[in-house]
Amino acid sequence: MADTSMPRSLTSARVSISKGLLTVAISLVVLVVVSAILAPSSVSPGAVLGMLPFAAVLAIVGLGQMLVVQQGGIDLSVPGGVSLAVVLVTHMPNENDALLVPAVLAAFAWAIGAGLLNGFMVGRLGLNPIIATLGTNALLFGAVLGISGGIPRTTTRLLASIGGGQTLGIPHAVLFALGALILVSILVKRTVAGRRFEAVGASPAAARATGLRYRTHQGAAYVWSQLLFATAGILLAGITNQPTAFQGNTYLLTSVAVVVLGGTSLLGGRGFPVATVVAALFLSQLDQFVLALGVPFAVRTLVQAAALAIGVAIYTVNWAALRQRFARASAPAAIATP
C-alpha cells in the first residue's frame, strides 16, 4: 500500500472548456464589442436576425465537417451534399406543401447513400478522403443538375415558415442548429458508439489495439456528415426564397475554416462541437462587421484569411519550442528570399 490507507478518489468536472472554445469565445466577445463601437449597425437587432440563420446553417455544416475531420479525414462533397438537399426540397414539391415530407425523406435518403459511398471508399477501400469525396461531389452535382436542370424553384410556403420563420423572436434555423449541436454532443459524449468514435479519432492505432473496429467508425463519420449537410441544405432552402442549384458551393472552404478555428486538428483527434458552432457565429459576425464598415469584399476576405491563419497558428505552433529557437543565438536564417 502507498502512504495513505485509502488513495484519494479522483474527480471529474461536469463541464470542460477546451482551448479552442476559449479562444473562439473570447474572439467572438471581442468582435461583438468592437462591432458595437466601430459599426453599431452590424449588431442592430435587424442585422443580427439577418445573420443568425446563415450562421446556423454554417454551424450545422461545420458540425458535419468536424465529425469527419476528427477522424483524420476531410469531406469535400459539402457543396454537392448541401446543393442536392436544397434542390430536392424545392423541386420535388414544386411549391406544394403536401409533398414536402417525402422530399425531406428523399434528401436524407440521398445523404445516407452519399455518406455510405464515401464511408465505404475511405473506411473499407482505404482511399484518400480528398479524392473519394471529390468524386462523390461530382456525382452529387450530376444528381443536382439531373433533378433541377440548373433552374431554381421557389421554396414551399411550409418550408419557408419552418426554415425561415421565428418563434419568440428566435429564428428557427438557430433552434435547428442548437438541436444539431445537442444531438451531436450527446451522441459523441454519452453513447457507447460515440465514445468509441471519439477514441478512434484520437488514436486509430490505440483503438485498434483495444479491439475497436476503427475502420467502421472512420467510414461512419461520412454518413453523419452527409446527414448534417442535408439538414443544412433543407434549412437553407427554407431561408432563401429561390435557392440556386449551386447554393452549397460557398460552404466548402468555410466549413473547413470553422472546424479549424474551433480547434479540431486536420490531422484528426478530438472534435469540439461547441467551439465549431461558436466559430461559425464568429465568422458570420466578422462578415457582418466588415460589411457594415463599408469596406470592399476584398478586405472581408483578407480578414477571414488572417483570422484563419491566426487561429491555426494558435493551435499548431509549438510556442515553447519557438521561444527556445529564437533564444539560441546562432539560429540559422529560416529561408533565403530570392
Binding site: L253, V303, Q304
Partner: peptide, 12 residues
Amino acid sequence: LTVYIALQGLSF
C-alpha cells in the same frame, strides 16, 4: 487554404 482565401481577397 489560408493562402487560398487571402489570394481571393487580394484579387478583389
